[in-house]
Every structure is written in C-alpha cells, then in structure tokens.
Write a protein that binds this DNA or RNA. Structure first.
Lengths: 208, 208
DNA sequence: GTGAAGGTACACCGATCGGTTTCGCTCTGA
DNA sequence: TCAGAGCGAAACCGATCGGTGTACCTTCAC
C-alpha cells in the first residue's frame, strides 16, 4: 500500500492530488495504456515522488478512479434536498447521463470503460468500478422502494443496465445515442407503475 | 491494405486463417495490449509472414474482429428456418446471450469491449464493431416491423442497448447478471405490445 | 547553523514493444 | 531439374515500458 500520512489526508494540497487528478484525466482520455512518464509530466510530479506514494501503476490507476468516483456520482444523482417523486428523481439521473454524453471530450463512463479495459479479474481498479456500480444501483433501489415497487432489486439492476447500455452503445456507435437512456428508463418505470401520479411510499397495487 | 490473393480468398487454408483465429482469441482474452510476438507464436506463424499480409497490428486486429463477426452473429440470431413469432425470436436472442455469459472463459461481447479499449476514433476495428452493432439492431428492427410495432427503430435501438448493458454490466460486476437481459427485453416488448398472441406480419397499427 | 523531510531532475535498468531484415528450408509448376 | 514463391526461425532496430538509484535543491523546526 505504501501510504504516507499526507497522502491519505489529502491535506498535502499538492503532489498526490495533482497526480491523481491528472491520472484520472489521462486514463479516461487515452486508456490504461498511458505511460508513467506521460502521467507524471502532466501532473508536474516526478516519477520518484509518485513511487514514494504508490507501489505500482496499477495502484495509481485504482486510486485515481476511486478519487473521481464521488464527484462523478454526485454529478449524476439528485441532490439531498430533491423532494420530487421517485420517478422524477430516477429520470433526472438519465437526463443528466445523456447531458454528459453531449460534452465535447466525452468518452463514456470511466468505470464501465475501465472494467472493459482491465482484463485481470482481481485488479484493484475493477473493485472501484464495481463499487460505483453498486452505489448507482443502490440509489435506484432506494427510490424504487420509496415508490413501493414490487421487485425493487430487479428493476434497480435493470436501470443500472440502462446506464451501462447507453454508455457502451454510444461508445460502439461513436456518438451519443440521444434519448435512448431516458426512453428506456421511462418504459421500465411505466411497466412497474412508477408514475408521477403515484405518491411515493403509498403503494397501491400489491397484487401479482 | 497489402492483401495478397490467397489472403483474400482464404483458400490458403493455413497461415492467414490461423493468424486471425489466434488473434481473435488472444485479443478477446487479454485485450488489445497483446504483443505481436505472442500473437504469432500462438498462431504458429512467423512475424515475417504476418507482415506480408498485414501492414500493422491494427489491421490484424480489425481483420480478426471482422472474421469473427459472422459466426458471433450467427450464434446469437435465430436460424433462417425459425418460424416462431417475432417476440419468441427476439427473446431467443437474449436467452442465447445469457447462455454465452455462462461459459467459462466468457469475457463479455468482443465488439463492445474493443469499442471501449480502442480510443482512436477512426480505428478500423471500431468500424467493425459498429457494423456488428448495426446488424444486431437491424435484426431486431426486422422482427419488430413484422410484429407491427409503432416505432421499430427506437425499440430496436433499445433492445441493442439491452445487449450492451447486459455485457458491460456483467463486465463491471465480474459475473454474468443472469436473467437481466431477458427480463428487460420482455418488459420492453410487453410495453410495445409485442406478444405471442399477436400474429406475425398481421400488423394492426399501420402508422409510420 | 544544521539536519531531516519532501521534492525534482535525470541517468539508468532489464524487458518488451511494433516492425524489419536476413537466411535457409520446402513446396510447386514448368 | 531448377527457378521462384511462401514461409518459419531468429537476429536486429529504435523506442518505450514500468520501475530504481543517485544527487541536488528547498523548506522548516530546533
């Protein structure tokens, strides 16, 4: 692990932060094939310093991914003071997903990409990607439980798959597939009767 | 391009075929980072021969992917003599998709993976992946038109996204997400009223 | 002043990368 | 019988890979 105190806290205000931010950007833009030298140069950090905080390139990759996860999730999920219906909150996520795809420099979901690029099963970066995935699913599940859906686990998993499918489909096509994520999510929510007319929590249709 | 006559026809019965098959396998198992030397050794082909048929590693990658595409598609799509309903044919695709995920050595859809791994926008392999994608969508669209669906293009694109989402979701989780693809497809078909009770070809909604 | 801590600069390591070249063997068709 | 194409083995090229070792600089507490 090889972590110094300043690296953990981030109060360093420099070296490690710069390194991880640059790493997240370069790995996202160019893939995991980016070399250490290019990484350090972009971050303005010497290789010597990098290897003082991390034992290997793989650790840097995982740490950079882990550092970017909270911000990425916060950009997609509704704020803590969003009091709209579960349906609106869920659909909002997919609207923001499609908005990010319109960005120049957009290259898909970094976590989905990493999971495809890194073939080693127990690579630390894969665990980070999986955790992001789980948190997204957990958000969906929470909103669906609030809406009184019959099978919140399955539907939450399906909505996460919509997220994944939108990103990798757009990746294959080389262009953002506008409207695809929101329309799929809406259909899935309709089928589960998660509508705006339904008050959150007051489940009305318990049968089958 | 640098293609000799024997390479094009494939009647060579050896060198090129062995090379592309080994390339498809290794690239799929280990990613595009596999070296030329490992590739040639696995194929039992010298580098010298390889560079007589292909100008670069990138061309080998694209050719290997293109060679594997028809078989991959044939394994997923129904046979030409499948006379079941459009719904059954579509759901059959997703059942087969989930079956392939149960294979040991399964590592996701090779075309979706390549699109994630290769960052260069105009890489020839990306075009191959896109074509596979388009053919899958075209199959869905054909079946949906036959079923008389109102918006076959959108629904076909959604079903392809289910395919993508299943594979990349399973990739992130590191395990096949059993039942996810079939359940999503079934919901989407239900919402579009593509049911077994509906006769194929006897479209009831003629609009668009 | 002094020494430890944290940092940069840079040469360096062995390994491997994509790609080229040379050599010699084998097969084939005239 | 012999020319020539096809191909494998292997040396070789310059570049780059991930990772180290060393020397020097700055900052700051004492």
């Amino acid at each position: 692990m090889n972590t110094s105190s300043t690296a953990e806290t981030g109060t360093d205000g420099g070296t490690v932060t710069r390194l991880l931010d640059a790493a997240a950007r370069l790995f996202y833009e160019q893939g995991v094939g980016v070399g250490i030298a290019a990484l350090c140069e972009a971050a303005g950090v010497s290789k010597r310093s990098m290897y003082q905080y991390f034992d290997s390139k793989d650790e840097v990759l995982a740490a950079a991914l882990a550092r970017s996860a909270p911000g990425h999730l916060a950009r997609l999920l509704p704020g803590p003071y969003d009091t709209t219906t579960p349906r609106a909150r869920i659909l909002g996520v997919f609207e923001r997903i499609e908005q990010t795809a319109a960005d120049p420099g957009y290259r898909g979901c970094p976590f989905v990409s990493i999971a495809s690029e890194v073939k080693v099963a127990d690579h630390p970066a894969r665990a980070v990607a999986r955790e992001f995935h789980d948190q997204l699913t957990a958000f969906f599940r929470g909103a669906l439980v609030e809406a009184g859906v019959r099978r919140p686990d399955l539907l939450a998993q399906q909505l996460t798959a919509v997220h994944d499918g939108f990103f990798s489909g757009s990746s294959v096509q080389g262009r953002p597939l506008r409207g695809l994520a929101t329309s799929m999510a809406a259909t899935l929510l309709d089928a589960a009767q998660v509508g705006t007319s339904r008050r959150s929590g007051t489940a009305a249709a318990p049968s089958t």
